[in-house]
């Protein structure tokens, strides 16, 4: 009887450990599934169109009588849009992070950090919606344009959306710097501000770089908010013109696409995926060097 019970217990243990092994490995399966599906769905169109024509073709006219599938405008728009968002969002987030991490009193942090969490949690469609109703009309009247839906509007919305991740990761990085560095600098006669910017910030360099890369990843992958404010015309990027990003190119035509056009949309997703994988690899290196955990 005792032996039987022991056998039963052993069986349960073996089953449990097998199940957990499967649950762990299944995650690798998910990533492979996504990769394989994107490659299978995206590669044929790239081969049919020709990689050079596809990636560097300057004209996208998928529904024309003689369709042209050049995604250079989308790639450039995504790069410019992301760069613009970083240019606006980074200084804003960086200075806020230094203040919150080093100068703000506990009470101030207690009030402001939930606000930043809220900013991080607001759904992207809400950003798009507010951008559409507030930003787009004001850009139109401010710069007297025929339509305010433009790359500029998208850049501002994206800058707001990446702000919380830049702030949060930068704060973690700044707080990971050992206190001794600060004390040493203060003892040498530097004042607080000099200490923060000449000692603590350089020491937290990799972590802050990781915050930037994380922001780049968010910005380049954002679809809904951008779709609502960028105008969605397949133009070459220009600050005050209606543009289409890689993400919005996929989303805006998917519902009515067919044939080669549909395959080309999957190819765009594949290109986007390659971008994201490169950004992720950079992020991992930076996080490891900065000793900051990803949140």
């Amino acid at each position: 009887m005792n032996l039987l019970a022991k056998n039963h217990k052993d069986n349960v243990e073996t089953i449990a450990s097998t199940i957990f092994l499967i649950l762990g490995v299944i995650n690798i399966g998910f990533v492979l599934l996504i990769c394989v599906y994107l490659v299978i769905a995206g590669l044929p169109a790239i081969i049919k169109i020709g990689p050079i024509d596809f990636l560097f073709g300057a004209k996208w006219a998928s529904t024309a009588a003689e369709p042209q599938f050049g995604i250079l405008p989308f790639i450039l728009t995504s790069i410019y849009g992301t760069a613009g968002a970083i240019v606006i969002g980074l200084p804003l987030g960086f200075f806020t992070a230094v203040y919150l991490a080093k100068i703000a009193s506990k009470k101030v942090r207690y009030v402001i950090e939930p606000l930043i969490d809220l900013l991080a949690g607001i759904p992207s469609v809400v950003y798009g919606f507010i951008g559409m109703l507030v930003l787009v009309p004001s850009i139109r009247s401010l710069f007297s344009l025929p339509d305010g839906a433009s790359l500029f509007a998208a850049i501002i919305v994206l800058a707001v959306m990446i702000l919380p991740s830049i702030i949060k990761v930068s704060i973690t990085a700044l707080e990971a710097v050992p206190q001794e560095y600060e004390l040493g600098s203060l003892a040498l006669g530097a004042n607080e501000i000099e200490t923060y910017y000449r000692v603590v910030v350089p020491a937290a360099k990799s972590g802050i770089a990781a915050a930037v890369v994380l922001g780049v990843g968010r910005a380049i992958g954002e679809a809904m908010a951008v779709m609502m404010v960028a105008g969605n015309a397949a133009n070459m990027p220009s600050l005050f013109e209606s543009v289409r990003f890689l993400t919005t190119a996929v989303a805006s035509e998917m519902s009515y696409s067919s044939g080669l056009q549909r395959e080309a949309l999957f190819s765009i997703a594949l290109v986007l995926f390659v971008f994201i994988m490169m950004i992720n690899a950079t992020l991992n290196v930076l996080l490891k060097r900065g000793g900051v955990k990803r949140k």
Binding site: S17, F20, L21, G24, V25, N27, I28, F30, V31, L33, I34, Y37, L38, A41, G217, I220, G221, E222, A223, T247, V250, A251, M254, F266, A269, L272, F273, I276, M277, I279, N280, L283, N284, R294
Partner: peptide, 29 residues
Amino acid sequence: YAKSPKLVKGIEYAVETLAGIPSIIYGLV
């Protein structure tokens, strides 16, 4: 449970990758 550090690294890398993939790609797949 995990004993092999290689497998742990692989799984953790996969999880990090999943966290970075934009939602529009999840939608397509």
